[in-house]
């Protein structure tokens, strides 16, 4: 019986759908836009997160000491920083190691490398701190500014890196906020469009609805076709948005490095592949919530039993 009920409800829903095809196309178009916005926002958000993460992993803070700083002082600073759990590593760089690192650098001319030698080594000793999280940077900054250390510290890469990370964070936050606002806007527009589309379908079918009421149609038949109609809008919108995303990524990557998006795309493509199912579930939820939810609101207001 359940199968028969659904078969009949689907038949009515399909009839509504084809009878008001232009309305249906408009609803699907708007919902596709909404789902696309949510998907693109998600992909961009994942990509910038990953980019920021990669950047943060790469960035270390190096604190260089003046020659008059004692080994004991350096050790004391190292110990103080180590009290924080989240530091991946704090590595002491001796003058010898600093020289070795310098000599192994490829982008430094040989003439310059020759000036620096073990007998006359101006390179400072340092602590290389691998920071896990951007928030740890301020802790490092606070410690090295303490009066017992500050006079002995020659330089630190803290400020430069802080600026860079702040920029990345600002962009990431902006994309998230902008994406969220845009997504909410499109979702709301879609809700309104689907709500009104279903409302118009109900008005077009008012004659049939009246007959339904008079012959004692079950609540299921008075409502299910409209809910199915809303679901169909969401379903088609989901297929279209997936197709658009898939084709866009394929097309843009085939253009190779000529586009300015190429570096972002190299990031987005694997993220799309990795998060395909998550994206699909989110799209399905957004599509169903907009389609079925808006129909439900419309039914509650306009279908009289």
């Amino acid at each position: 019986m359940i199968f028969t009920r659904f078969k009949r409800a689907i038949k009515i829903a399909l009839a509504n759908f084809s009878r008001n095809s232009m309305l249906a196309i408009t609803a699907i178009f708007i919902m596709t836009l909404a789902i696309l916005t949510v998907s693109i926002f998600m992909l961009l958000s994942f990509s910038t997160n990953e980019a920021a993460q990669k950047l943060k992993d790469k960035i270390d803070i190096t604190v260089n000491f003046k020659d008059e700083a004692s080994e004991a002082l350096i050790q004391q600073l190292k110990n103080e920083l180590s009290t924080r759990e989240n530091f991946k590593s704090i590595h002491y760089i001796s003058k010898e190691e600093a020289l070795k690192n310098f000599q192994s650098r490829v982008n430094v001319k040989k003439e310059i490398k020759d000036i620096v030698n073990p007998a006359d080594n101006p390179l400072p000793r340092g602590l290389q701190i691998g920071a896990v999280d951007f928030s740890q940077f301020d802790f490092v900054s606070a410690v090295i500014k303490k009066p017992q250390y500050a006079p002995y510290i020659d330089s630190s890469s803290y400020e430069d890196n802080k600026q860079l990370i702040q920029n990345v964070n600002t962009i990431t936050k902006f994309i998230k906020k902008f994406g969220l606002v845009l997504s909410i806007m499109f979702v709301l527009i879609s809700v309104l469009v689907v709500y009104n589309t279903v409302r118009l379908t109900i008005i077009f079918r008012s004659n049939e609805m009246e007959i339904m009421r008079l012959v004692g149609a079950s609540t299921f038949f008075a409502r299910a076709p409209f809910l199915l109609e809303g679901f169909m809008y969401g379903f088609f919108a989901l297929i279209f948005s997936q197709l658009i995303i898939f084709i866009s990524i394929k097309l843009l990557t085939s253009f190779g490095s000529v586009t300015i998006f190429s570096s972002l795309l190299t990031l987005i493509e694997p993220i799309y592949a990795k998060n395909f199912w998550l994206l699909l579930v989110v799209q399905l939820i957004v599509g169903t919530v907009i389609g079925v939810g808006s129909s439900w609101l419309s039914i509650r207001k306009f279908v009289k039993l």
């Binding site: 019986m1 028969t4 009920r5 009949r8 004659n207 049939e208 009246e210 007959i211 339904m212 008079l214 012959v215 004692g216 149609a217 079950s218 299921f220 038949f221 008075a222």
Partner: peptide, 23 residues
């Protein structure tokens, strides 16, 4: 109050279809 796009048979059947009657 008949449905114009349904035949006589279908108009009558409609009342039963929407009331969960078996085929």
């Amino acid at each position: 109050k008949l449905l114009p796009n349904k035949t006589v048979y279908e108009n009558v059947a409609y009342a039963l279809e929407v009331s969960d009657e078996s085929d």
